[in-house]
Structures are given as structure tokens and as C-alpha cells.
């Protein structure tokens, strides 16, 4: 069975979360990925949502980050100001786990507008907590489908700041997982291809990236999803379809 793009993102992302870490989980694919990790190799992963929910163990995949299922299974629900001010800003969140509409070579993420801000061709949801999470989480992991529009040389709008020009910010974006491969940021803070999904070539990645992409000296192959990963992914998706 061929593996679809979202499965590659979700499974690839899930593997990057370590047991016991505190991860601030964004909506969509990051949520799917974090829930896979929690059900497999990271049962003590602490899922935190920007609604204030801490240590949720939802029985089914929540549609929104403030769902009653998350609240009912949580350790606690922090007021939003407490979460951002006293937990995130002070460095107590290990991983920011997010997506976006565009990402550039410095790891700047756009989730605000496509086109000019004053007269956008598409108005998107905006930052929410993304810019704050990118500012403060110990490291940021980004999950995104890979194509030329999403990987431009410059994002249309910097919602969540990446690495500053010419330098690597220690708690900036750490890893980007796409349906083509996996990327890190080198000592200059520049995105670099480090691994490919099975059957994907470097040329294909280059063709879908809007700048001359740096390539690591040795490219790993990302192992395909294991039967366990596929099983959990399937269960989560079925529950999602059954929502509400």
C-alpha cells in the first residue's frame, strides 16, 4: 500500500518526540503526530494545547484544541495568560510542534496571508500562539506538505520567526518534516536536507524548493511507517471521521 503524504508527515513527526517531553501541539497534522507518539514510543509525552489544556489523553482525536474531550482527560487547564506568560515564556515547553502555509530557508513560517498584507489573495487564520511558541519553545518541529508555493525563497509574511540572518538561534526551528524528506538547520541557521522518504530523489526536493537548497553530506533514508505506526494512524483517523 502506498503511503500518503499526511501519513509521512504524521509518522515522521511522531518519531521526533521523546518520551517525557512537554510538547505544545498545533491543530491538524501535528495533533495527529503527537497522538501517534503518545500511543507508541512516548506514553509519558505531555501534550499541551494553546487553549491551556495540559497533559491531555484524548480518547479520540479532537477537532479543536479546546475540545471537551481534551479538557475531561487533562491534568489541568491553565488560563491562557498563565500558559504563555509563566510556562512558555519561561522555557518550560520542550517542543513547539506546528504547521504553516509557507516556510523559507531561515525557517520563518507564514500562517497569516498569501500576497500583500493590505490586499491579500488569501487571508489565513493568523498567528494564534504560533509566533510565541516559535519564540520560546526549546526547539520547534514543523510538519508541512512540500511544494514550490509552500517553500518559497521568502515567505509572504513572517508570522513565526525562524533563524535570524547569518546565525542559528539555539531554540529556533530544529527540524522540518515534509512528504519528501526531513530537514535540519545548519550552524548558519540555513535549512538543509538530511533525509529522504523512500523513493524520493534529491532532484525532486530541489525542484519543489524555491531556493538553492543545502544538502547534508550524507543523506539518510527515512524508514517507511512500521505496521504499529500504520495501525495507530488508522485508528486515529477512523475516530476523526467519527467525530463528533
Amino acid at each position: 500500500m502506498p503511503v500518503d503524504g499526511q501519513s509521512r508527515l504524521a509518522v515522521g513527526g511522531a518519531r521526533l518526540l521523546r518520551d517525557g517531553e512537554r510538547v505544545l501541539v498545533g491543530v491538524g497534522t501535528p495533533n495527529l503526530a503527537a497522538n501517534i507518539a503518545k500511543r507508541l514510543h512516548a506514553p509519558r509525552l505531555v501534550l499541551i494545547y494553546e487553549s491551556g489544556v495540559v497533559d491531555a489523553a484524548p480518547p479520540k482525536l479532537p477537532l479543536s484544541i479546546g475540545d471537551p474531550d481534551l479538557v475531561r482527560t487533562s491534568l489541568c487547564v491553565l488560563p491562557i495568560h498563565d500558559l504563555f506568560s509563566q510556562y512558555l515564556q519561561t522555557g518550560w515547553i520542550d517542543v513547539g510542534f506546528m504547521g504553516g502555509a509557507q516556510i523559507d530557508r531561515r525557517g520563518n513560517l507564514n500562517s497569516t496571508v498569501i500576497g500583500p498584507y493590505e490586499s491579500p489573495t488569501a487571508r489565513l487564520a493568523g498567528s494564534g500562539g504560533a509566533a510565541d511558541i516559535a519564540s520560546f519553545a526549546r526547539r520547534t518541529i514543523v510538519l508541512m506538505p512540500h511544494d514550490l508555493r509552500r517553500f518559497p525563497e521568502h515567505v509572504d509574511f513572517v508570522t513565526s520567526p525562524g533563524h535570524p540572518p547569518g546565525a542559528r538561534r539555539p531554540n529556533g526551528p530544529a527540524t522540518v518534516v515534509t512528504d519528501l524528506g526531513s530537514f535540519d538547520y545548519d550552524e548558519d541557521g540555513e535549512m538543509r536536507l538530511v533525509a529522504l522518504h523512500p523513493g524520493v530523489t534529491v532532484e525532486e526536493v530541489r525542484a519543489k524548493t524555491g531556493w538553492p537548497l543545502r544538502i547534508a553530506p550524507r543523506i539518510e533514508e527515512i524508514p517507511p511507517p512500521t505496521p504499529d505506526e500504520l495501525r495507530v494512524l488508522g485508528e486515529l483517523r477512523r475516530q476523526e471521521e467519527m467525530n463528533p
Partner: peptide, 22 residues
Amino acid sequence: FSYAGNPGVGNLPVFRRAVESG
């Protein structure tokens, strides 16, 4: 505002039209 989305679903269509039209 700070997040004009419909979480897990998409955007806010009326908001989006109102912003895009000014």
C-alpha cells in the same frame, strides 16, 4: 484578534471576505 480560524476545519469564511474586500 489573534487567531481567525475554525480549528480543525479551516478559516472563517465571512471574516475572510470582509478582510479581503476591506
